[in-house]
Amino acid sequence: MKLLIKQIYDQISKYGLVVIFVLYLLLEIIAKYFHFSKETTNIPMLVKGIILCLVIGLIATRIHKIKNLWLLLVLPVIFVIGQLTINDSFSENSLVIFGKFIAPILFYIIFSEARLNPNYRKITFQIFEWGMLVNSCLLLIGFLFDFNLFESYRGNRFGYSGIFLSPGVASYAYLVTLFYFIIAFKEKVWKNWKFIFIFSSCLFIGTKAIYLGQIILVLYTLTLVKTKYKKLFIALLGIIGAVAAYLFFFKFGLFNKVRETNGLLSAILSFRDRLLLDNTIPYIQENWSFINYLFGGVSNFDLRSQMEVIDIFFFWGILGGVIYLLAYVKHLITFKMNSMLWVFAGLLILIVFLAGNFFVYSTITIFLLMLRERISQLP
C-alpha cells in the first residue's frame, strides 16, 4: 500500500499540475457553453467533487507529516457550529460553498507534498503559457467577430473572457499570468512576445480589476528598467491612468451612467455596495446571534456582497474568517517573500477587497499553483 501511494505521489509530481490545469480549462469550456446556451449542467461540479475526494484521500495518507494541518481541520468544526445556529442549516448551497472554500487549501497541500518534478517543469510552464495564449486568441476572436460564446457578459456590457465563464475568474487568471511573466523575465518582460500579446488581450476583458492591475504592473515594471527617463515614464503613465479613470467615471460610458444615477461608490464597486446593504446585512440582522458573529452561518451564499473580504466573514464569522485566512496563506506561501512578491500581494489584496469570488473559484487556485512553481525558480 505504501509503495502504491508513493507511486501516485510520484505521478502527481510529474503530471499532476499540468493535467489539472488542462482539465480545469476544459471544465470552464463546458460550463460556459451550457451557460450561454441557457442550459444547466452539473458536469463541472461533479468532476471537481470527485477530484476533491481523491485529494482528501491522498492527504489523509500523510496526515501526520503535514505542517499547520490543524488550521484546516478546525474549519469543518467552525462550519458545523455556524450551521447549527441558523434556520435551514446545512442547505445544499452552504455545503457546496463550504467545499469551494476548502478546495484551494487542499490543492495547496497536495501540491506541496508532491512538488513539481524539475524534469517536468519546462513542459508544464510551456503548456500553461500556450493555454493562456490560445485563450487570448479566442478572446480577440470574440471581439473581432462578435462571437457571443467568448463574451464576459450576456447583454450590452463590453467584455470578452475567452473560455472563462466568469469575468472575475478571467481577471484573476490574467493578473496571475502577467505576474508569472514578470517573475520570469523581470525588466526584460517587455521583450517577451507572449507577455505582450497576453497583456494586450487583457484590454478586451472589460473589468476594472484587470485595468487597475495592468496600470500597477506597468508602473512596477518601469521601476525595474534602468534609464534616466524612468521617473518621467512613471509620471506620464500615472497621469494617463488618472485621466482615463476620470473620463470613464465622470464623462462617458456605463460607469459614468451608474455614477449619475447611483453614486460614485456604486460605479466603483459595480453595485456591490447595494448587495451588501440590500442582501447581506438584512440576512445577518434577521438570522444571526452572537455565536454567528464568531463562527458565521449562511444558508444561501447568493446573498453575499461579492466583496471577497466581507464575504469570508459572512460565511465563516470573525474568528472563523481569521482562521480560514491563516490556513489559506500558510499553505499557499511556501516561499520567502521579497519586494516583487509583496507588490503582487498588495495588488491582489486591493482587488480582493473590491471584487468577489477569489476564494471560491478553484480555477484561480490552479493559476496560483503555477505562479508558486515559477516563484520557486527565483534565486
Rank of each mutant, 00 (worst) to 15 (best):
F34A: 09
D146W: 10
K122G: 05
Q285V: 06
D278M: 14
L219R: 10
R274Y: 11
Q7M: 11
G238K: 11
I210D: 06
F353P: 01
P282R: 04
N93G: 07
I291R: 08
C137P: 00
Q7I: 06
M307S: 04
I323W: 07
A244I: 14
F158N: 01
E129I: 13
L3C: 03
G155D: 04
E129K: 09
D278S: 11
I56M: 13
N87G: 14
K67Y: 14
G346H: 00
F195Y: 10
A355V: 05
F107R: 02
I8M: 12
W316M: 05
S112N: 13
A345G: 02
L350D: 09
F233D: 02
F233H: 11
T41P: 09
I20D: 00
V322K: 10
D302M: 04
L232A: 13
S201H: 01
F255K: 12
V169G: 04
I110W: 08
S362I: 11
A345P: 02
L3K: 15
R157P: 00
L73Q: 15
I110V: 15
F353C: 14
F290N: 01
I205E: 02
I63W: 14
G49E: 09
R372Y: 09
L3P: 00
T41N: 11
G155F: 03
M132F: 12
D88G: 06
I196Y: 00
W288Y: 07
N68K: 13
I375C: 12
I351G: 06
D146P: 00
P379M: 05
G82P: 11
L348W: 06
Y160G: 00
E129N: 06
K6D: 14
V189H: 04
F359Y: 15
T177D: 01
I81C: 14
I163C: 00
S362C: 03
L140P: 00
V134L: 14
L303N: 05
T124D: 05
L269K: 07
I63D: 03
F199T: 01
A173Y: 02
K38G: 06
L106Y: 02
V258R: 08
M307R: 04
G321F: 09
L222V: 07
V352Q: 09
I215P: 01
Q377E: 12
I239E: 12
R154F: 03
L203E: 05
F179I: 10
S152F: 02
L73N: 12
I43F: 10
F107L: 14
K32F: 10
W342S: 01
G159P: 01
L319Q: 10
